[in-house]
């Protein structure tokens, strides 16, 4: 298990936070000067897992921050996408998920891939709905000719949070 770490980088009005490790009872989220930044970008690629106490800490940290700055989440892993769908407020109303990982699996090759979907590219949002524009054939996730790679999640459940963002 990996302890939680945060790397910070500022760029004018913007703050970039890179999270790594496990979000649990030991997590210490960074204090953010909300008067200084208009946008806070949070890179979640390195987050391994989150537990129930981690969810509580996330909500308590996120709520006041989301009232003062716009939050943009990037590279959200499956563990956090599941919480965005299950826990109301986990993705704040003013929050925006720019990109997130989608699990794929081929039973034939026994190969798995986590594919980064970005809003505006693989995902289109409009009028309260989302549209998946990912073409698995052209993505060439596997070199095998007969590969049967497919999404390893229920699309309706996994992409549920996108409806809220599109609304």
């Amino acid at each position: 298990m990996v302890d939680f770490k945060v790397h910070e980088k500022t760029d004018g009005d913007n703050l970039l936070l890179v999270f790594e490790g496990v979000i649990d009872e030991d997590v210490v989220f960074p204090a953010v000067d909300t008067g200084t930044y208009k946008k806070v970008f949070i890179d979640l690629k390195g987050v391994k897992s989150i537990n129930s106490v981690g969810i509580r800490e996330w909500l308590n940290w996120m709520k006041p921050l989301s009232e003062k700055a716009q939050l943009v989440f990037m590279k959200a892993p499956k563990a956090l996408v599941l919480q965005m769908n299950m826990v109301e407020g986990f993705l704040p109303k003013t929050g925006f998920v720019k990109s997130f990982y989608v699990p794929f699996y081929c039973e034939r090759c026994d190969k798995e891939e986590s594919v980064l979907f970005s809003v505006g590219q693989e995902i289109e949002l409009s009028r309260g709905a989302y549209k998946v524009k990912f073409d698995i054939a052209s993505a060439k996730l596997c070199a095998e000719q007969a590969c049967e790679m497919e999404m390893d999640a229920s699309e309706a459940k996994y992409f549920q949070f996108l409806k809220r963002m599109a609304g």
């Binding site: 537990n51 129930s52 106490v53 969810i55 509580r56 909500l59 308590n60 299950m86 826990v87 109301e88 407020g89 986990f90």
Partner: peptide, 23 residues
């Protein structure tokens, strides 16, 4: 809802762990 059911007492668990496990 999950968020409304969270126990905010800082010394203990969040009170939603059993729900997450059952889910």
């Amino acid at each position: 809802g999950v968020a409304q059911s969270i126990n905010q007492s800082q010394g203990g668990g969040a009170g939603i762990g059993s729900y997450m496990a059952f889910n």
